[in-house]
Design a protein around this nucleic acid. Structure first.
Lengths: 154, 154, 154, 154
DNA sequence: TTTT
DNA sequence: TTTT
């Protein structure tokens, strides 16, 4: 179809550590579970209500998989740009199922860290390395779309 | 959770006429099936590939349900702003299932007609009426967010 | 024109405290200066480059002006949704000038606090008040679009 | 600054043909003037009001400059993703001036044709060529972000 | 004028 | 499963 647009923008927290997988072809794929929630007050009772939405995120963009693996952990707060994709699968009872995911494609999307995540296992081992890598990776403009390694801003 | 954002932006075509439902409380709810697609060329074979994605859309915003009912038909091209919501249901085999939808909430979201849809049943009967209604409804700025009936632009 | 969309999404920091103004009609208007920046590495020299962009923000949305006044300060990190507007003015030399602003309109837009801003003059005086007000205001889903005071999420 | 986002999304019409420029380094740059507008009804008089906003657009993304040059004309309706950038210049009276533009950067942004533009001078000469080129360029998913020449969708 |  |  000509002229389609499919965009998702999320700001939320990771419900658990990102899961890193590797394809046979050698590329890294990251799966994450991300929560957004909205709260409101019940008009009648005045009670505070909250609804949490869980999003399955799959990152194909190589640079962003690297950033996700290095810097994201359970609880991390992130800004994410991706697109909707629903895939079909068959469960153990041979029933067809559908799962909708927010996909960050190989060429596109964005991922921005919105907090200072405490370093943990798998985090950069030295402050210097950490700082440098962050600066050129997650710490700049939205990774994956911007000319971080170029010499012009646009 | 504080500081969440959950946004979806789609431009695509309706796969069928919108379905209009009414709640017991009297509000109108519109369900739509919307397709987006992307195309690319296979590097090796040079073959043109295409992948179509289908989105379940649910509109709660009253003004936008009205516009959808009046002006949208199978094939209509629209711009839509909503949010992701996954709901759980139980199928006839008592198996828990999940369906993800793009929800246009009661207060928020947007819907913009991107084509001049052929008039059909339920459409305005005269060109003049059609033009006027479109102008004050779907044909202006994104309905549902903008002060179409106010006297200031912002 | 039928079918327009005009959206701006920013995540950045305030360069100074928000300025609060009041119209003759009694509504509050907030002006803010917001910085976004992107960084990249010069390919030849390996030098780290950075470009900061300054955005003039004007908030008309009543609830968001209240949140901005109460919780935002110089240095605050925020997510903001608005629209572009360029206004014409005449300087002291009678020369016509144009200024482009990011406007958060009366009915629409969004503002989300992304940090815990240190409380300062004008901030809520007690933790309890602070927490409660935040929870029902800036601390929920994007303020200004969501049914924070309703009893249904959508 | 770490963690910035600067995004603009527009749907509107071109006020005139795109202007194509070439840098000394040989890259193509396209300048466009794009209108969005919103309409509303004056509460008191019932009068229909309309406000048109003009946006200066500058495209650096090579593929998108090519599409803009080939397919866009005065009146074309487009979906555009870019970022805000304000540049300083000095007028003939030596007065410093600022102009804000919507920039589609070299690596990023998107441009989608939303109408079938009448072919004109500079357009593809045959329907076949036109169709094919459109299909692989502007007519697919948002150009500039998607793997149009790859063999996987994500 | 922010921030890292 | 996150967060406030």
């Amino acid at each position: 179809m000509a002229g389609s647009v499919n965009r998702v923008i999320l700001i939320g927290h990771l419900g658990r550590d990102p899961e890193v997988h590797h394809t046979q072809a050698g590329s890294r794929i990251v799966n994450m579970s991300m929560a957004t929630s909205e709260s409101w007050r019940n008009k009648d009772t005045g009670e505070r209500m909250e609804r949490t939405e869980w999003h399955r995120v799959v990152i194909f963009n190589e640079r962003l998989t690297e950033i996700a693996e290095k810097y994201l952990r359970k609880g991390s707060k992130v800004y994410l740009e991706g697109q909707l994709a629903t895939r079909k699968w068959t469960d153990q009872q041979k029933v067809e199922r559908y799962t909708t995911e927010v996909v960050v494609p190989r060429f596109g999307g964005a991922l921005v860290l919105l907090d200072r995540q405490q370093t943990g296992p798998g985090s950069p081992s030295s402050p210097d390395d950490y700082g440098t890598t962050r600066a050129s990776g997650a710490g700049g403009a939205p990774a994956g779309r911007d000319p971080l390694d170029d010499d012009v801003p646009f």
